[in-house]
Amino acid sequence: MQFRFDKEALMRRIQVVILLVVIPIAAVLFLTAMSPSPDPKKNTDTVTRPGSELPIFDTHVHYKKEAWTLFSPKEVLELFKRSGVTKALVSSSPDEGTRMLYKLAPDMIVPFLRPYHDDVNSSNWFKKQSILDYFKKRLELPIYKGIGEFHIHNEIDADSPVILETLRLAVKEDLYIHVHTGHEAVEAMFKHEPKIKVLWAHAGMSDPPQVVSAMFDRYKNLWVDISIRENDIAPGGVLSPEWKALFLKHPDRITVGSDTWVNSRWQEYEEIIKFDRGWLAQLPSDVARKIAYDNAGRLFGNGDSGKR
């Protein structure tokens, strides 16, 4: 069988291939070459969640003696930096832990004076008259913004003469009180000394957000840190409607805290802050920023924005 070469048919096929394949590919390559290259310095993520990159002012940190061998002061500061924490309110048992951190980073650390040292602890500090002399002696170093965190176990203990004198000292020296207690004892404290300024640890620990809201309505000099309440605030990572309602109603009264009261909290620190960022991201951006940093910055950090 003799094969006949049809030159004209071949040329027609080549033209079809050029029209259908080569020209479109060339056009795509040309348009790609003409498109501007992305700027690596420019953030192209236009849907960044509002709480994910905020600076954090941690208002509940303890650098207790038990942690000194786990993390050196320098390592604590590095941990803050990795976590995006730009300021920290620190009180320690004993107070030397706070001073060690403050010495290395006075612009980052906001010292509070905790009563616990030697044989003075959460169960007996308010029974020891000597604690008042301890406060006055330590306060001679003018670095402290407040007294606490200390515990009041019930409203009856809030009537202790030592606690009453502590409240008067705080008012006289224009210091905040950082207290771990329920709402009944907070009410008793304000009854004894209406001019006190209170940072209420753990938002009451077990008090529901409705009670916290009512306390805010009643006392203008009351703020909270939300440490240890993470699972109440955002069970499974989803912001509770009740807590969200509190945050939206009182956005200027809430602060973020971690509470490194045991070494395991230091070991989990980055995850704690990451979890807090998760529920902050579920709030309007202006509310998230107030809670993450601005409220504490206004109260304890000379009003700066937290940017570094």
Rank of each mutant, 00 (worst) to 15 (best):
R13P: 00
R13V: 10
I18N: 06
I18S: 10
I23M: 05
I25D: 10
A26V: 15
A26E: 13
A27C: 14
A27V: 15
V28L: 14
L29H: 09
L31F: 15
A33F: 14
S37E: 14
D39H: 01
P40M: 07
N43R: 10
T44L: 14
T44I: 03
D45E: 07
T46Q: 12
T46S: 11
T48M: 07
E53W: 01
E53N: 13
I56R: 12
V61Q: 09
E66Y: 07
P73E: 04
L77Y: 08
V85F: 10
K87Y: 10
V90L: 08
V90M: 11
V90N: 09
G97V: 00
M100R: 14
D107A: 11
M108F: 01
I109Y: 04
P111Y: 10
R114G: 05
Y116P: 00
D119T: 02
V120M: 04
S122V: 03
S122F: 07
F126L: 03
K136D: 08
K136W: 02
I143W: 09
I143C: 04
N154W: 02
N154M: 06
A158Q: 06
V162R: 03
V162N: 05
E165W: 02
L175T: 04
G182W: 07
E184N: 11
A185R: 06
K191F: 13
E193M: 12
P209Q: 10
P209K: 05
A214K: 15
F216M: 09
N221T: 07
W223Y: 13
D225H: 01
E230Y: 12
P235E: 07
G237N: 04
A245E: 13
T255E: 12
G257P: 00
W261S: 12
E270K: 10
R277Y: 06
R277N: 05
G278A: 08
W279D: 05
A281T: 13
Q282R: 09
D286V: 06
I291N: 03
D294I: 07
A296Y: 07
L299H: 10
F300T: 09
N302W: 14
D304I: 08
